[in-house]
Each structure stands twice: as C-alpha cells, then as structure tokens.
Amino acid sequence: MSLDNKYIDDSILIRFLTGDLDSENRQRVIAWLNESDDNRKRFDSVEAVWVETGKLNPQPIAVDTNRAWSRMSDKIQMQSEIEQIKRRGRSLYDTRKVRTIWGSVAAVLVVVIGFIGIITSQMFPETIMYSNKGNGVISDTIPDGSVITLNSGAVIQYAESDDNERIVKLRGEACFDVVKAREIPFIVDTDAGGVRVLGTKFIVRSVNENRMRVDVERGKVEVYALSSNRMDTITSILTAGESAVVNGSVIKQVKQLPDAFFWVNKRLVFSRTDLREVFRIVANRYGVDVDIKDESIYNLKLTASFRADSAEEIVAIVAETFDLRYYVDSDVIIVELSD
C-alpha cells in the first residue's frame, strides 16, 4: 500500500462524491484510484451507495417518525376520550335537557391557524384542535361564539356533535367565556372531571388525571368528577367568584385567588386582602419589586379590582386610597407613610 493511501479514507471519498473537495485533493483521489484495483473497489462500494440513494424519487425528507407517531397517538387518545364523553354526556343530559329546535344547523367549521386549519377543517368538519405551544396567551372564538383563551401549553379539542352538545376536551389551563346557550350544555372535560355550564365565564386548569381547578368569574357552573367506584359522577355547583379543586373523587370548594384571571385579562380582585398580600401579588405578576418602608402598611386591608397595564398604576391607586406616598427608584417601587 502506498503512503498516500493512508490519507484517503472514506470521508475523503465521500467528499469526492459530494463535491466538497478542492481540486488538489480531487487529483489525489484520482491518482489513488489508479493505483490499484482494491482502491477502485473500495471507491465503488461507496459510490454504489451514493448512486443507489440518488435514484430515490420522490426524494426522502428528514422527518422524525417517532415524534410524529406520538403526536398521532395523542390525537387518537383524545378522539377516543371525546367519543366516550359524547356517549356519557348524552345519557347524563338527555333527560334534563329542554330541547329547542335548532336542528338543521350543520357542524360549523372553524379555521384554526392558517394553513393547518384549512386542511383540518376540510377533512374533519367535526373535530377541531387548538394548542398553544408558545409562551404567551392565545384566544379564539369557537363556532358557537364562545371565546376560549389558552394559557401556555394548553391543548383543547372541540367537537360539535350531531345533536349540538358543545364539548371541549382540555389539557392544561384555559379560560372559557361561554355564550349563553340555546339550552345546549357547554361541557369542558379533563382527565380528572369536568365542568358543565349554560353561559358563563370561568377558568379550568387540568393538572393531571386526578386533579383540576375551576375558577368562575361570571354565571354558574356545575363541576363534576367520577365517583370513587367510577360508576357515576359527583357534582358541585359554583357561582361567580367561587373556585373548586377536584382531587380524585373529591370536589372541594376553595377561596378564589385574587390573581386567578390575571393571565387571561390582567384582572386582579382583592377582597379585604392585606396590603402585604396585595403587593406580593402585584410584584410577582408584573415582575417588579415593591418595597414597603413601614410595617404598619402591611396590615391595611384592600377591597378593589384592577385591570391595569403596569404595577405603578395599581400602586398609585392603593396609595391614594390609604393616603400613602410612593416613588419609583430605578426598578423598585417604594411605598411609605406620608409624613
């Protein structure tokens, strides 16, 4: 074997084939090829692969089949859950439902986001899937006019069944502003249970297969979960300003947090809340520091609601309410007693 041969390895032969070789090295390869039959055969074996892969038509593209399958598998899972809810929903609600003739309205299509939406709606007029993969909050109006706002990471699948039940399958956190319904229940189902409504605004956060949380801003909803024997459902009614947590087969009413709706519309609702807590939430939600100069300020109690663009707007109103003084020093809002 010649000395040159040492330096002609497979990667140089491949560069020769891909055209990633300068002319000097091309000459070296050619000279090396002419040295021996064995060299020639080694090259042939690489070239054969190159030629054979080149014949493919249409050409391959780089896809991740396993990831694609896990996406498909999620969709199948959700689909079968929706089928189940449809069946369950039908038997649960048929007896109570006062039917109106709303009849011949066919399943309405919704355009999801651009391209993908068009394909989806063409092929599946009955099932629409939204997901929020970004960090922000997205909002959309579904065919019945209700507005759904998805927090980061939330996924919903919406099916309008033949008899016009409105069912949304949810993973993650979403806020529902439900159009007062033509006697058709609006159902949000999660792995842990669900919520049934006739027109209201509320948040559902599905945590995992056993836990979810519901916060109601307006109207009245019925929260349901499967009983421990999983044979029937337990329910609890919530009205405006109330919240509940479902944990397994227990529905527990809890105090609604002042910032429950903040991610949806920057709403903060305080009801006899100490300023210590108020400023903690404001600082946390707006990502600022609020520095309280006097301990006595902490125990003042605030009842108010806000939809403010900045922390300073809120601090200004609080300061005025309690006759306090505030100023901004670089990134810190400092609050103190006036004199």
Binding site: D10, S11, I14, K41, S45, V46, A48, V49, E52
Partner: peptide, 19 residues
Amino acid sequence: MSKALIFLRKELSEYLPLI
C-alpha cells in the same frame, strides 16, 4: 456523512454486489 454512508453501505451490502 461518513457514519451515514458506512451504515448505508452495511445495510445495502446484501443488495449491491459491488459493495
């Protein structure tokens, strides 16, 4: 690229006499 081609060569060896 080297690893890819070497792998493909191995996989296709039964089918391509040259290899």
